[in-house]
Design a protein around this nucleic acid. Structure first.
Lengths: 231, 231
DNA sequence: CGTCGACTTGACTCGGCTCAATGCGAGTGG
DNA sequence: CCACTCGCATTGAGCCGAGTCAAGTCGACG
């Protein structure tokens, strides 16, 4: 018997939003909870999508590695997000690896069940299309950034995205609420940890950010936005 | 009364594949043909998606311009493709401008009709999800290329994509079958026409490609593939 | 025959990567 | 509680890929 809180949570996700309470109950009844420890994989690039995953607690990093080694972090998934959903809908191998950043909780549905639910509740299909479409536009903007913007601006964008998505107020600014190394930032911005370190130090001196070991605090969001726009 | 040829064409597209003949007739009956001259826009970035467009003949370039000016060509659409479909499904402004490369023919459906058709024939929804999902993965790979690969390799990829999509045999190689300037290639590879020119000349000397004014012939596809793999 | 747009090429510059050394904080085991 | 170790971070030196600037050349078309 699913709890009311769980149903409320589902109804606020992009995938199951707008569904009737009885539909949510059917959906919740078929879900299996799963706990993933920090730094453990939820699924791996190239693997077959046997289950749909919904993050309910924690943070999950989506990372892609190329044949030639260079890793790239595509995005961070937060509660309500559905990592790997495109692969599940299309029944193609996962294009990336999902790793829990901190101990995280997920709900999972077998791929077959997802197909059935989508047929039974067309609203899920519509939501899925909306969601995947959003993902497409996001990736389009990301490509454009990589293709045309200098490193500094890309780093600023990464920080702003992170703080918007996972910022919590602290002292005199907003802190990214999960451990985040220079290397992590580099993989999101498509650069090296050296360049990230140099850039962050520079910004630290000018009061834009503060930091520490696996910590980043944005002290002047407006200033960072100015960097994004091109000084 | 739609012609049988038209219905056959529709049934071979990604969006309307797998639909019953009577469904295709209904769909075809609601379409309006449209002719777009070379270098004219099909739709513009930022515009509201009033119609769904399906290319039936010709080639359509999807290009995105950023606030800071740098243009980026996302892809070339061929007959059967549905430029701007993501925007139409989500009813959000077009994220890019579509321009006919040569005189082209399209079929168009009002956005409202698309919604009705999708409700009436759920297979269209499923196809749309499949299609948009494919677009997402494509953009993901594109980002990765821009983020991690050197220019030379990106140019090679652009040429290989183009010749696979629109190559026709000619003399001793495959030629891209529409006019394609160095500038166009640069916008697809995220670089400048100077670098493209230099690179192509180098490859011309080593027999990989041949070219001319707005023409590119791939003479040694295997050699180009070696470039994409990293020499 | 002049003009214009596409292409080629050289010279120079510089952002950002590589290589290499060092600093620093947090666990861990004795 | 201290010494050791290990992973993260900082910083300098040097280099190179690729962009910018600046002339040209070539071919098409009016």
């Amino acid at each position: 018997m699913p709890l009311q809180d769980d149903l409320d949570f589902l109804s606020r996700t992009g995938l199951f939003g707008g569904l009737a309470p009885d539909a949510l109950e059917v959906i919740a009844a078929r879900a299996t909870p799963r706990l993933v420890r920090a730094r453990q994989a939820v699924f791996r690039q190239g693997g077959e999508p046997t289950h749909l995953h919904l993050v309910t607690k924690g943070w999950v990093k989506i990372g892609h590695v190329t044949g030639s080694g260079a890793p790239l972090t595509i995005r961070i998934m937060e509660p309500g997000d559905v990592p790997g959903c495109v692969a599940v809908f299309r029944r193609t191998p996962y294009p990336a690896t999902a790793t829990a950043i901190v101990d995280s909780r997920l709900l999972t549905w077998p791929t077959t069940a997802v197909g059935e639910l989508m047929e039974r509740y067309p609203r899920i299909s519509a939501n899925a299309l909306e969601m995947v479409g959003g993902r497409t536009e996001e990736m389009l903007h990301r490509s454009r950034e990589f293709a045309t913007e200098p490193v500094e601006r890309r780093i600023a964008r990464v920080l702003l995205r992170l703080v918007t998505q996972a910022g919590q107020p602290v002292g005199e600014g907003m802190e990214v609420s999960f451990p985040l190394s220079r290397q992590d930032i580099a993989e999101m911005a498509g650069t090296t940890l050296h360049t990230v370190s140099r850039t962050l130090r520079m910004w630290e001196r000018s009061g834009l950010v503060a930091g520490g070991r696996q910590r980043v605090v944005i002290r002047n969001e407006k200033g960072l936005r100015a960097v994004t726009a091109g000084d």
